[in-house]
Amino acid sequence: MKLGRWLSDHWVMGVGVLVLAYLFLPIAVVVGLSFNEPSSRLSYDFNKFTLDNWTNPCGPGDMCDAVVRSVQIGFIATVAATVLGTLMAFALVRHRFRGRAATNLLIFLPMATPEVVMGSSLLALFVAGGVPLGFWTVVIAHVMFCVSFVVVTVKARLSGFDSRLEEAAMDLYADEFHTFRKVTLPLVFPGIVAAALLAFSLSFDDFIITNFNSGTTVTFPMYVWGAAQRGIPPQVNVIGTAMFLIALLLVLGTSVRRRRAA
């Protein structure tokens, strides 16, 4: 009886934990393989424990170049998309204007369009316009698909914003600039940071759109894709594990800071 009661109280949590385990299963494999010394180039099975991959992460020729390039693209695309998207979010939440519905549609559609369609149509544009494919076409593409996600993220934060706080600031001798600087921005900032993190992770991880628009430029996902045909160097798993750890620290760090701030 007791067991039945316990089960009925906790089965949801039990299922939840199982689903989490499912989410972590491949991560465990990635972490494990990062310590693997593969028996052959095309083998994905665990063979022998080694630290070599970690001590020599840039072993396979171009991988680290690809990672650096992905970080560069991600950084530029994130900054641009965050600025553009935040401005749009402010306009949408704070102002009434004609063409609002059309703007919303323009923001929604990229999220509802399969990447393969966006990537291919953008490629067609670049080809038609004679734009040489490479680093900057990838940046342009990444900014394009990140903007919508930035807009919705910042918008969510802004629409929960109490505009009386700005009125209070104005009432307390802060002009428009200082009101924005001292009240609006600090309060919306967590939303902007979240949007930027999201944009970076979308950009860093994108393969499909990048594959269409990169020409000969190789990002990390493209390197992995190419390597998958010839055999994956175990260092790829080192990068995967490192990304996972960095993300974990970042997210935990901001949430601890937030809790302290609250």
Partner: peptide
């Protein structure tokens, strides 16, 4: 979320 910072392809 954390597992999804490991690259899509790597996963």
């Amino acid at each position: 979320i954390a597992p999804f910072f490991t690259s899509f392809l790597v996963r």
